[in-house]
Design a protein around this nucleic acid. Structure first.
Lengths: 251, 251
DNA sequence: CGCGCTTCTTGACCAAGATCAAATCCCGCT
DNA sequence: AGCGGGATTTGATCTTGGTCAAGAAGCGCG
């Protein structure tokens, strides 16, 4: 609600504001939508992504029911997406970090079907979807990569279904920690120590557990020397042990 | 394994085999990928979908690890997709019926990530994916519809996450029955009586329940006059009652 | 038509995780 | 530095759905 919108200067030339928004000079370009594009194609993406949005912790990027116009690429910060049932029950459907795309749910009905909330102060690039479709008709590598991104989201959700449908509490938490560590590593952060950005309740919601259960599993893992927990600060002491817990394979 | 492959005659002219495979003369064209295409665009889709495959009950359409080349549109029959963990645990990730697309999971890595199995004798149209991408670069409505299909799959999976993460056994079963009834209605079948194509175990796997629990919930629903159950034959006696159970909203 | 296997139902009991409750911790704010 | 409210931990107890078991029903096949 207090989100600030920042538009690049409309002038065509080289100016600072413009450069700051450009995919071609973005440090995330190897993680984000432009992966694998040639310089020429990258330049065309720059015309697509002209607007950024800054959000403070707790701000909504969009809400279920909002009209869908754009996808959002996380530039910095951390988000959750969640569904709400009428009776107030909430299901967290994902956590998104730098380089990940938010809003794919809205394409199908042209309305967003979930809420996206910043869990810390964050910045996103606004990607007008009709222009993305247009450009991806002209730039095959972009089209292909976009399809891969959507497909991987489907595969990720299959993994969550496996988690929720077939795994026990300890396995779920272990799989989550390994997955988070892996994503942090990809972004150049330490995979063995990090601060959780979500509360126990939000994590529990994602994993289909109550917050007390998450807390207890953390405590048990600590007793077993798998991790060290100090509130939100987690150290992975024995990743191999965690991997054994989920059966050798991370989701 | 015993799947038979059927290719349309390569000759360009009007011949029977060719016509039988054509999207433009398919009764499912309003449910399937070609939704909303003009006749001219429809004709271009006909060149895309030249091959069908027949499967017998129990046949695999593909397996996790298989190289991904094509999507499959269900023409008739019924499928499940499932993930397997090393320790043998299985998670059913979806059930697919006429007009629905199977194989989207493979786009991201160019390998299938789950198994697709026919639950009854079935027929699918084979859609070579690189040609679909090519055509959807030229035919914007096709591109848009394909994106919507993928997005809706993501939204469906969000619904399953809600189901698995936040709902109790009775709510899950009620939501499933209502969803199935709705999909049958869309295809012109009765939404109030149908034969389940999956076992209690497969249904339980999808819903994150054991087969005994599914059976017990069915029995309880029957006692309460919500449904009538005779093995796989289900009659929905009180859809409103089921809807109340899931909180007014179906997933 | 009947055999044999798979699937389904039902009962008795069990256990993982939920619920309820109470301290304690932590962090942002003044 | 101190205050206050939300977040976290931990314990006690309960409930839902899982597990184990046995029999019944349904169905494909000869």
């Amino acid at each position: 609600m207090t989100a600030k919108t920042q538009t690049a200067s409309p002038a065509g030339g080289l100016d600072l504001e413009r450069l700051k928004t450009a995919c071609s000079s973005c440090s995330l370009r190897e993680l984000c939508l432009p992966v694998g594009l040639s310089n020429a194609d990258l330049a065309r993406m720059d015309d697509l992504v002209l607007v950024r949005r800054n959000l403070m912790r707790g701000d909504h990027l969009f809400r279920a029911g909002d009209s869908f116009q754009s996808l959002y690429a996380v530039r910095s910060g951390f988000f959750k997406t969640k569904l709400l049932l009428e009776d107030g029950r909430e299901q967290v459907t994902g956590f998104q970090m730098a380089g990940e795309l938010i809003g794919l749910d809205g394409i199908g009905t042209e309305r967003h079907t979930c809420d996206a909330v910043a869990l810390e102060d964050s910045e996103v690039c606004v990607i007008p979807f009709s222009r993305l479709e247009q450009l991806s008709r002209e730039v095959a590598p972009l089209q292909q990569h976009f399809h891969k991104v959507m497909s991987r989201e489907i595969v990720r959700e299959h993994g969550v279904m496996m988690l929720l449908g077939s795994m026990r509490a300890e396995e779920r938490v272990a799989a989550f920690l390994l997955n988070l560590a892996q994503r942090l590593a990809t972004r150049g952060y330490s995979p063995s120590e990090f601060n959780l950005r979500m509360t126990r309740e939000e994590l529990g919601s994602y994993l289909g557990l109550k917050l007390e259960t998450v807390s207890r599993v953390f405590s048990r893992f600590q007793e077993d020397g798998l991790i060290a927990v100090q509130s939100k600060y987690i150290q992975i002491a024995n990743p191999q042990g965690l991997r054994r817990l989920v059966g050798g394979e991370a989701c």
